[in-house]
Computed example of a mutant assay.
Amino acid sequence: MTELDETDRRILRALAEDATEGAGALGRRLGLSQPAAWRRIRRLEEAGVIAGRAIDLDREALGFGVTVFLGIKLAARGREGLDAFERGISAIPEVQAVHHVLGRFDYRLIVVARDLPDFERVLRRRIMVLPSVGEVEANVLLSQERRPGPL
C-alpha cells in the first residue's frame, strides 16, 4: 500500500473532480509549483494509485435515459459456463460494467438503454439468450445522489 500524505489526498480529490486539469493549474490551486504537482501525480500513477483518467459521459444526454442494475445467477457452474457467459456479456455494448460477485447473484451488471422497451429488448434478445443465464433480477436507477470519488 502506498503511503499518502494530505497533499496527495488533495491532488486525488482535485483530479476526481476534473481529471483533465493540468499539473500547472492543479499546482496553483493547491499551492504547489507545476513541477512539484507533476512529480506527485507521476508518483501516484507509477504506484498504481491513479490507474487512469476517464471522462464522465452524461448517459441521458447521449440518449440513454434508463440505467438498470441487473443481478444474474448462472444456471450452470464450472469454468466453461463462466467463460462463455463472460465472452457473451462483454460483446453487448449496452452493458457498461460487469462485476463478478459473491452472494445471491453471480454477476451484477450495469446496463443502459434508451427507455424501458429498449431495455426489455436488450434483456430478452441479448442477455437472456447467453449460455448459462438462470435467474435475473433488475433494479432500475431512479436517481443518483453521489458520484464515485477517491477514498
Rank of each mutant, 00 (worst) to 15 (best):
L44N: 13
V112A: 11
R29K: 15
I55P: 04
D58S: 10
V101Y: 01
A51C: 07
M1K: 11
R40N: 06
R121M: 07
G71F: 00
V66D: 01
E60A: 09
V98L: 02
V122M: 13
L151S: 11
R28F: 13
A76Q: 13
P117D: 07
T7A: 06
P148D: 08
A54E: 14
P117G: 11
E3L: 12
K73V: 05
I11V: 13
R147N: 10
A19E: 04
R39W: 10
V112E: 15
D106I: 05
R13N: 14
A75E: 09
A97P: 02
L74E: 02
E3T: 14
W38T: 08
P93S: 02
G88V: 00
V129M: 08
F119Y: 15
L44K: 15
H100Q: 07
V66H: 03
F85C: 01
V98K: 01
D83T: 09
D18Y: 03
E86D: 03
D5R: 06
V49K: 05
G88D: 00
L123G: 06
T67V: 08
T20N: 13
T67K: 11
R10L: 13
Y107K: 01
R9A: 06
R87S: 00
G88S: 01
L4P: 15
V95Q: 00
Q34F: 04
A36V: 12
E17I: 12
A47V: 14
L130M: 11
V112F: 09
R28K: 12
D118Y: 09
G103C: 08
L57H: 15
D118F: 07
T20K: 10
R147Y: 11
D18E: 11
L123P: 12
R9Y: 04
R53T: 15
L109Q: 03
R42E: 15
L116P: 08
F119L: 12
I92Y: 00
L15E: 03
I89Y: 01
R124I: 08
F64D: 04
A54N: 09
S132R: 09
E6Q: 14
F64G: 01
L26K: 02
R29I: 00
G22Q: 02
R9W: 05
M128R: 14
L74W: 02
R77A: 09
L102W: 13
E137G: 06
L141D: 06
A23T: 03
S33H: 07
E120K: 13
L82S: 03
W38H: 15
R77V: 04
V95C: 00
L151Y: 11
I92R: 00
G134K: 08
R121V: 05
I110A: 12
G48Y: 11
R126C: 03
I92V: 08
L123Q: 12
E17S: 08
Q34Y: 03
G63L: 06
S33R: 10
G81Y: 00
A14E: 06
